[in-house]
Computed example of a mutant assay.
Amino acid sequence: MVTNRKKFQGVLNILSFNRHFYVIGLLVLAIALTVILLLKLPTIIVWITISAFVYGLVTPLLVSAYVYDFSGYYSFKWLQPHINDNASVKKIVNINAGFDETSFILQTKFPTSEIKVFDFYNKKQHTEPAIVRARNVSLTYPNTKQITTNKIPLKDHSTDLVFLLSAAHEIRNNKEKETFLKECKRICKPEGKIIMVEHLRDIPNFLAFSIGFTHFFSRKTWKNAFKNAGFSKIEEVKFTPFMSVFNCSN
Rank of each mutant, 00 (worst) to 15 (best):
V58N: 01
F21V: 08
M243L: 15
K7P: 05
F246K: 08
L39E: 05
T108F: 15
G25R: 13
N173G: 01
T102Q: 14
E236I: 15
N86W: 11
V2W: 11
I92P: 00
I48L: 13
E176I: 05
K175D: 10
C184P: 02
F99L: 07
T43C: 09
K227H: 12
G10V: 12
V28N: 01
L139V: 01
S71H: 08
N247L: 13
E198R: 07
P81H: 06
W47H: 02
N84W: 11
K151Y: 06
N174H: 14
Y74H: 13
P42K: 09
R5G: 08
E170W: 09
A52Q: 00
G72S: 09
N84L: 12
T240S: 15
R201L: 15
L200N: 11
F120H: 02
A52E: 00
L41S: 01
D119F: 07
L62K: 09
K116P: 00
E183R: 04
N86I: 13
F180S: 00
I44F: 14
F163W: 06
N173T: 04
F110M: 08
R19I: 11
T140G: 01
S232L: 13
N96M: 02
D160G: 02
D69A: 13
L161V: 08
A30Y: 14
V89M: 14
I95E: 00
L164K: 01
R19D: 01
F217N: 05
I115D: 02
E235P: 02
T59G: 01
T149H: 06
I92S: 00
A208W: 03
Q80V: 12
L33T: 06
L41E: 00
R172L: 12
T34G: 15
L27I: 11
C248R: 02
N4V: 15
T144H: 10
G72A: 12
V58D: 01
H169W: 15
A229W: 06
F104Q: 11
T49E: 00
V58A: 11
S166A: 06
T179R: 07
C188R: 05
L181Y: 11
L154Y: 02
D156V: 00
C184M: 06
E198V: 10
A168D: 03
K233C: 04
A130M: 15
T240A: 14
W222F: 10
H169L: 11
F21C: 05
S113H: 09
I211G: 03
F53Y: 07
H215A: 09
I203A: 12
Q9C: 04
V162M: 03
I203N: 08
N143D: 08
S232W: 09
R19K: 13
V93W: 09
W78R: 04
H157R: 10
L62Q: 08
N86T: 14
I44D: 02
E183D: 05
T140C: 06
L26I: 10
A52M: 08
